[in-house]
Design a binder for these strands. Sequence first.
DNA 1: AATCAATCGTGGGCCCGGCCAACAAATCTT
DNA 2: AAGATTTGTTGGCCGGGCCCACGATTGATT
Lengths: 154, 154
Amino acid sequence: MDTPADDRTPALLRGRPSWLLTHLATQVGHVLGAAFDAGEFRRYHYALLAALDEFGPGSQATLGRRCRIDRSYVVEAVNELAARGLVHRAPDSADRRRNVITLTPEGRAQLDRMSRTLDDVQDTVTAPLSAAERAQLTGYLDRMLDHLQAQRRG
Amino acid sequence: MDTPADDRTPALLRGRPSWLLTHLATQVGHVLGAAFDAGEFRRYHYALLAALDEFGPGSQATLGRRCRIDRSYVVEAVNELAARGLVHRAPDSADRRRNVITLTPEGRAQLDRMSRTLDDVQDTVTAPLSAAERAQLTGYLDRMLDHLQAQRRG
DNA sequence: AATCAATCGTGGGCCCGGCCAACAAATCTT
DNA sequence: AAGATTTGTTGGCCGGGCCCACGATTGATT
């Protein structure tokens, strides 16, 4: 403690959304990681289960596009999910390049369980915000994400 | 295009701040990377220059704490900054464990240049938001970051 | 029908960023 | 004087995003 207030963040950083977003994301990553480590899961697993639950069975490529996960990692994640019986993998008879991934009842139950712990995470993360502010925040983030993704494609 | 709307993101993900934040952060990372790659810089370089500009010279450990960068990486980043003459590194005569890092005039000029490109990045990222909404957003993010950091320490 | 392009699953690798371990030198504590 | 703490530095680990290459299969072009 030589310099006064050793951990003050420069205003040039703290005032910029880009810096706030990236650093907040890593902090959120810690909370997420802690919540998931308990059940030996990663975010990918939840994302895949959620996609299967909402849109029904699909090929690995489709799943990856929906969850914005690289095909390579879908392979690995589906392996792990199938090994736990949360998901069923079968070759597609109509298009023999594809595997059809299906959510099993156990997977559905697991999804619900994870959703609950994820809700807790949201509460931890957005604790200092009122309900109205949280809604505003998610709206802003959603619009920004859409915009950036559209821009990257165009 | 077998399943309708192949790239629809599950609501269980898109509705959660944690998912929005992490994915938005990676998108922002791309924009940041593109903006910095042109000048052969990383975010760390900017952070360190900003801290030096706002709080004056300091030891590497202090700089790391301010910018929330690991000591290990401060070493590397200061090496690169010093090699370009943007920063001056000298042993501290008062405490011979430490190096005193000082911002050079060239470093100051570089900081200004980078600040301008960073402002452009902010505009790209927050494009779909009005000025009032941007202010709200940074406020929310700031509060959440403070809260999470305090919680992690406690 | 034959050929070329596109898609799928799979495996491999690269890079970035955050985190931690260790260690010698120096300083602070008692 | 002895032990704990800080600092700079090197090295490594892990998660996650991204890209490439390959064989197999399907779709489009002519």
